[in-house]
Design a protein around this nucleic acid. Sequence first.
DNA 1: CATGAATGAGGCTTCATTCAT
DNA 2: TATGAATGAAGCCTCATTCAT
Lengths: 210, 210, 210, 210
Amino acid sequence: MQDSTPTNYSNLSKSSKNTDKSELLMQASLEVFLEKGFHPTRIEDIIARAKVGKGTFYLYYKNKEEVVEKCLDNFREQIGKTLIWVHENIDSEAGIKDIFLSEARMLAETLSANQVAGKFLFREGRAVSSEIDRKMSAYYLELVETSEQTLAMAMSVGIIKKLHPRVAAMCIIGGIVQIFHHWLEGEVESEVEELLGETVNFYASALGLE
Amino acid sequence: MQDSTPTNYSNLSKSSKNTDKSELLMQASLEVFLEKGFHPTRIEDIIARAKVGKGTFYLYYKNKEEVVEKCLDNFREQIGKTLIWVHENIDSEAGIKDIFLSEARMLAETLSANQVAGKFLFREGRAVSSEIDRKMSAYYLELVETSEQTLAMAMSVGIIKKLHPRVAAMCIIGGIVQIFHHWLEGEVESEVEELLGETVNFYASALGLE
Amino acid sequence: MQDSTPTNYSNLSKSSKNTDKSELLMQASLEVFLEKGFHPTRIEDIIARAKVGKGTFYLYYKNKEEVVEKCLDNFREQIGKTLIWVHENIDSEAGIKDIFLSEARMLAETLSANQVAGKFLFREGRAVSSEIDRKMSAYYLELVETSEQTLAMAMSVGIIKKLHPRVAAMCIIGGIVQIFHHWLEGEVESEVEELLGETVNFYASALGLE
Amino acid sequence: MQDSTPTNYSNLSKSSKNTDKSELLMQASLEVFLEKGFHPTRIEDIIARAKVGKGTFYLYYKNKEEVVEKCLDNFREQIGKTLIWVHENIDSEAGIKDIFLSEARMLAETLSANQVAGKFLFREGRAVSSEIDRKMSAYYLELVETSEQTLAMAMSVGIIKKLHPRVAAMCIIGGIVQIFHHWLEGEVESEVEELLGETVNFYASALGLE
DNA sequence: CATGAATGAGGCTTCATTCAT
DNA sequence: TATGAATGAAGCCTCATTCAT
């Protein structure tokens, strides 16, 4: 529990150097992408931000697109790890609403730790390249399907109200993404805790929990 | 009723010649944008699709971005007209769920009539330019706020359950957009009518309507 | 006879414009290639010489290599036409040495008219690209083989001395190329007529023609 | 006789360590030059082939061009040594044809021992740099002139037929180079011995020997 | 001596835009 | 209006070379 942070770079002095540069470049890239947009960003902008030479960029990435590809993979991995962690640490005594709430909190935390990436991916990930677009569509679909299965199961055992499971999944995923998107963009003035609570309330109501 | 189709360009004989070329170019542009993505698309691709000379494009549009700007304006106008039409034609006898359903049906119809534009805007509208991004953010916010107000009012008169109106609005708008997005991308196999019905069911449940 | 020049651009006002630019670029390219060498030559050098914009080059050629490819094709065609013309216009009364002499004269004339191309191709054609290298090897082989067949036939009917026909062909082609190369490079001070005469003498002697 | 091989690096124990790396790099360079061509070859390719670090190349050579320069010098030296050896070991009793034949045999042997260098220099030596081009032109000219002098002398004493000595020299050098080139490229199927014999025959015939 | 990460000058190529017809 | 040949600014990317270890 005290070691929940997945990435640990300690005692890797040699290999960390590589990782450092590539990490540095990714952070710099994402920052500039957010500020200027992906397509208007020139490699020049990135290396200026990262304070490295032009050739150095190409030592670590084939081009701008590859940065995003790697970023998306990281992002998925982070989210994935979060979801897994949540499922492994569910307090079996807790009510469903509480489980939802912890899940939401963990997601919010992960997103918070990956703000720049999240903001960028939500905003213009799909427009980076058709490759990324495909990956993102696939990811959304995966989320929807996983969600659908969970809902279907919960419906069959009568924990939640009977609704069209896939439609419900899409409504939920879409809503959550929307809320996180607005939140990351700073367009929501409520406190996170309130936001999460109310969101859970909304979906609890939809699914007939109390 | 006999004039339900919102777009009606008839009796515009004079300007129609201009409009024809500019319309032709917009359709061609959107088609190519959808196929190759906005940024990879070159003016050359557009004029090849539209079968006009290279100079002709610049007779009607300043650049690719302007095409999208016009397209977004059209799109908003179509949706706006639809929503207005719905509100003007509400059968006051009908129940709320029925009103939602007609609203959803009309939106689906409008989106269907503007498939290419809708698909493109959902997919990569935000990445076209910061100008467009701002416009789209503003539009989403506007939708959320309008929705929020309606919900707040309905809550205050006890028609629907008391929830955080802005959170509810975001959940609803997000879910609907998600569903329409999946639908336009052909990733939903249900019949439209079923899809709409189940969506309305989900939100009716959330809002405590029966 | 009065129309022996193969290329005739008269009355082609429209298409000649295209041809003119591509011809202009080829001439400019070859000139610069000769002066600086193919590889050190930058597209910039070519367009400066041709006095056109940088984009214009790419309107007519994919890259420097393509210029050489086209040039080699032209060159082969010119030589080919010359050889054909010679064979069609042989004075059947003439002695073999005289036939050789007219052939040599015509070749010298053709090379003279394609000096820049010839000089460049002899000097560094093979180093332009492996593609060109292959083409040139194939061309040399073709020349050797054609020559070999002619010699073999002449040997079999006793017109010339019996020697190894392929070795003889290689000796002759190699020698002639060497002489033309030196001549084009301006490293031979004799008059053309004398050079040709003495060359024919040498091979006549080798082949036992008095 | 027991020391007929011109290159003998034995008893150079001290410098041999340096020489080894520089020799290794030269061999690696030439191999890659032959496979990819000189200009497309990057230093990276060379050091990959030689299995040394990138900086190491620069410890021994200023650049790719210098490798070729050294290679050309070696090559000339080898050929030079061969020719000298032949002249010093001529059996004064032998006929001219036999002398030619031994000369040709020794040259073939030397070329065989320097195949890679020879192939490369014949193929694209002139295109390496204008410096190398000049050196090669000068070398060809030197060969022609030496040959011319020998021929002129032989003509003056009536050993061989009277012909234009410079033209004869060019024909002979050109032919021999052509034959060796074809042979090195593997485009000749005859046995070396036959090839050499027939070549000597051809030129013997040209020069009126028997 | 040997290495290879870092650099940035320099050349290639694309493509939006113009403009004479 | 409509066209498309011509242009050159601008961005991408490579690769020779350096230098700290």
